[in-house]
Design a protein around this nucleic acid. Structure first.
Length: 315
DNA sequence: AAGACGAAAGTGGTTGA
DNA sequence: TCAACAACTTTCGTCTT
């Protein structure tokens, strides 16, 4: 594929590229340029694009998949005829094991079947790449094995796991989006997300606001200039450390709002609030912080004055 | 009339005693 | 286990465009 060779952004020369497999885009993290958006492969991904070339991964047979409830393999303890050579005690032990295994596996398999169906539905609704579905399936399987699903609805755990998998792969969806897709309350998803990641020791770095920019920008109909301006503002804000402890979504939303003002693609705070899922108040607070710390106040005043002039010229 | 602004009270989660 | 705390939301009144 042609995009394999792209290592640097043709616009700014930065090598800080982000391969958004979800959308089939390669995006420059520095200037926001979308380098190739036609790279959408509808076929199955057989090649390994990751850095690691796991040559020992080559195996015969169908690839195992965590989106199949038993990884595509079955496990069974042999039947009566296999045990005739064992003495009585051992045979009894084996029988007990068999009963246990049967019970455990049927309960778990039932759970997994339902869960993976829901997972499939969710990820197709959210247009998630198969890599995320895989990871989510893997996490869920572990959760079931450790009995973490009990007392929680399967659906809410699936939603939480999807959220976690998205975060892990740096293509985060907001809790609101997953909530809308799954019909589960936002808080409930957050709860199972936290519970599962804590119990399974899954480390998740705080999400980077940049990861939200391109998605929000496209929904808002912003042009590429505004988008890269947003990323610019974002990285400045990041380097001035006025982002610690703050929700990354609010920061991304405010950066986009400012970029819109500066680039003449004005959107209301409510518009931004709707696509980002944070309230106007939060956007305002971040907005205030960013423009004061970045000394953008004068620039914004200028822009406002200019637009006013232009309006008066219409007469 | 719609948008922007900000104060005040409420929510749910984290942290540290 | 509980209280203090920070971030965010909800609600609402006021100012600006």
């Amino acid at each position: 594929m042609a995009t394999d060779n792209i290592k640097k952004c043709p616009e700014c020369g930065s090598s800080n590229l982000y391969n958004n497999k979800d959308k089939g885009e390669i995006v420059c993290r520095s200037c926001g340029l979308v380098i190739d958006s036609k790279n959408i492969s509808l076929g199955k991904e057989w090649r390994d694009f990751e850095e690691s070339d796991d040559s020992e991964m080559r195996r015969s047979g169908a690839p195992t998949s965590y989106t199949k409830y038993d990884l595509g393999m079955g496990t069974a303890i042999g039947s009566e005829s296999d045990t005739f050579s064992l003495d009585k005690k051992q045979r009894y032990k084996l029988q007990r094991l068999k009963r246990w295994q049967k019970r455990l596996s049927t309960v778990m398999e039932k759970n997994l079947k339902i869960a993976l169906g829901e997972l499939r539905r969710l990820s197709s609704f959210l247009n998630l790449p198969t890599s995320i579905e895989e990871e989510a399936g893997k996490i869920y399987t572990e959760a079931v094995q450790k009995n973490l699903v009990r007392g929680r609805s399967i659906e809410s755990v699936v939603a939480g796991v999807v959220y976690a998998a998205c975060r892990r792969q740096n293509i985060p969806r907001t809790l609101d989006e997953i909530s809308e897709a799954s019909g589960i309350d936002k808080k409930e998803i957050g709860r199972s997300y936290r519970y599962i990641t804590r119990e399974l020791r899954i480390k998740i770095l705080p999400s980077n606001p940049v990861d939200y920019i391109s998605r929000f920008a496209s929904v808002l109909g912003y042009g590429p200039k505004t988008q890269s301006r947003g990323i610019e503002i974002l990285s400045e804000a990041l380097s001035l450390e006025l982002t610690s402890g703050r929700g990354p979504i609010g920061i991304a939303a405010a950066a986009l709002y400012i970029a819109g003002l500066l680039e003449g693609e004005r959107r209301t705070q409510r518009d931004i609030s709707e696509v980002s899922g944070v309230t106007e108040v939060t956007i305002r607070n971040r907005y205030k912080e960013i423009i004061t710390k970045l000394n953008l106040e004068d620039e914004i005043k200028k822009i406002k004055a200019k637009t006013k002039e232009a309006e008066e010229d219409d007469f």
